[in-house]
C-alpha cells in the first residue's frame, strides 16, 4: 500500500506492507542514519521523531505514520544541529551507532521537559542504551547543551 510521509520536511510517497515497521521502510528508502540494534524495542537506537515525539521505529508500524511528520537525524536543523557538536566535544561519540537515536531523543526531551534536572534527564533518556561510553560523559554533554547545571 502507498502511504505519505513528511520525512525531514519533505512529503514523499512510500510503498509499504502494513506489517512493516517504520525502521525497515526508512532504511529501504535510504534514510540510513536510522539504525537497528535489538529487535525487541529495548535499546532506543532506532529512535525517530513522529510529530516531534520520540518513538522506536522498530516497534512503530509504518502505516500508522501515514501523513505524519518524521524526523531522522539527517533532518535536524537549526540549533538542534549543535547537539552533535556537544557530544563530539565531550568525546562521547565513540562507536557512534547509538548517536542518531540519542540525539533525536534529546531534541524531543528539550521541548518536552519544562524544568529539566539531572535526574529528569537521566530518567527521560534511560531508554537509550549505550555500551561504549558508560553514560556519564553523555550526561555531561547533554546537560551542557540543555543549560542544566549539576
Amino acid at each position: 500500500m502507498i502511504i505519505n510521509l513528511h520525512v525531514n520536511g519533505i512529503k514523499k510517497s512510500f510503498d509499504i506492507n502494513p506489517d512493516e515497521y517504520l525502521v525497515e521502510v526508512l532504511r529501504r528508502y535510504g534514510y540510513l542514519s536510522v539504525k537497528k540494534a535489538c529487535d525487541t524495542g529495548s535499546c532506543g537506537v532506532c529512535t525517530v521523531l513522529v510529530d516531534d515525539s520520540p518513538v522506536l521505529s522498530c516497534s512503530y508500524y509504518a502505516v500508522r505514520a501515514n501523513n505524519k511528520h518524521i524526523t531522522t537525524v539527517e533532518g535536524i536543523s537549526g540549533e538542534d544541529r549543535s547537539l552533535g557538536e556537544f557530544l563530539v566535544d565531550e568525546g562521547v561519540d565513540q562507536c557512534g551507532y547509538c548517536s542518531p537515536g540519542l540525539i533525536l531523543t534529546v531534541i524531543a526531551m528539550k521541548k518536552e521537559l519544562e524544568n529539566p534536572t539531572k535526574e529528569s534527564i537521566v530518567e527521560y533518556l534511560t531508554g537509550n542504551l549505550c555500551r561504549c561510553t558508560g553514560y556519564v560523559g553523555q550526561l555531561r554533554a547533554i546537560m551542557r547543551y540543555m543549560g542544566v547545571s549539576e
Partner: peptide
C-alpha cells in the same frame, strides 16, 4: 524500557 517505547 523508555519514553520511546511508552509513546507506542
Amino acid at each position: 524500557i523508555g519514553v520511546q517505547l511508552r509513546n507506542i
